[in-house]
Design a protein around this nucleic acid. Structure first.
Lengths: 182, 182
DNA sequence: GCTCGATCGTTCGGCTCCGAACGAGCAGGA
DNA sequence: TCCTGCTCGTTCGGAGCCGAACGATCGAGC
């Protein structure tokens, strides 16, 4: 479990040889040059690319600064978080809110259950369903870890004013909402 | 290669039973309730969570609407994109710009090369390095696919004005820059 | 030249993640 | 009561993805 998805996915790209690539401004210049003549929605492209780039960088940072030392993967963390928030929740809802398939969830739940962080039990009224809850150990871990995690979220968004963070969240929410509606 | 990472990671969460979860507003309400009493940076939390949520939703949408029918994975697409932009580029730079490890890149390049979309050749001045270029077939695919992809990027960001899209990209860029500096 | 350290890409073991197929359980209608 | 269709979670095959270890190659210094 540990040692996965925790390392630097984005290598620093430092080096001293010729032909070095600047990862941001230089790339966008090359893009503009390459796409010269095509009729494109540049603002849309910039927005989408940076959303994905930011998500990767953030995930990377949070994995290394908070999750790695506890042997948690990003997905494992998200699953714990969802269960923690809802106290008791059906497995299918965990998958939906964590944004993973149910097939994936099975494996993640098995791992977390083996580590004693949560438990599965059959739904009393429907034997097909599975209810998930945190163990005391899982709850304790969340209480300990979440403030750390949030502190790093603050570090990540440090370049933005509080007002801008909310504005950012708002814009992204509207994008997600638009996609869910499709 | 096909049939991976293309499906709906976010299940629609439609259903008619009790205890249904609203994925957005309802969740944030539950979060606020659960976190009552803790001293947290809520704007930071909202920003980070929505970045990640949006990234997943967008990736999911683009995979299904554009990439799936061509048997491309997200990562395969990104790699093709990077090589396309730079025309000829060393493998290590591809990995850095695609945001994946060089170990992963080896596998992806092998896959894409087997499909005749790109070629590897040894750097003339340094036998350790590998230069990657698109084949004619790869270039043709990009010329065909990129406008489609961009059109869907526009769909994804439709809830935002062009001005807002640029503003969004700007904020995210500053976040990424801040993380790279660490 | 020749060694020594650094830097490439590849390989390897192990995990995540997906969609499809599957089996168990549930509900409605003949 | 027994089908029939649906919805659960699990299993399975295959790709992505990582860090670490490895072999080949280069360059600096002697």
């Amino acid at each position: 479990m540990a040692g996965q998805g925790v390392g630097p996915r984005r290598s620093p790209a430092v080096g001293a040889d010729t032909g070095e690539h600047r990862t941001l401004a230089e790339t966008e210049r090359a893009v503009a040059e390459r796409l010269h003549g095509l009729s494109l929605d540049m603002p849309a492209m910039a927005a989408v690319q940076n959303i994905y780039r930011a998500a990767g960088a953030i995930r990377n940072h949070l994995e290394r600064s908070v999750l790695a030392e506890h042997g948690l993967t990003w997905t494992g963390w998200v699953v714990l978080w969802v269960v923690w928030i809802w106290e008791e929740i059906e497995a299918r809802h965990v998958a939906a809110e964590a944004g993973i398939s149910k097939g994936t969830l099975t494996g993640v739940l098995t791992t977390l259950e083996a580590r004693g962080l949560l438990v599965r039990r059959t739904h009393p009224d429907d034997a097909r369903r599975v209810l998930v809850t945190l163990t005391d150990r899982g709850s304790a871990l969340m209480v300990e870890l979440f403030p750390e995690f949030n502190a790093q979220e603050a570090v990540v968004t440090a370049p933005l004013e509080a007002q801008e963070r909310l504005r950012l969240a708002d814009m992204l929410r509207s994008v997600v909402r638009g996609l869910d509606a499709v």
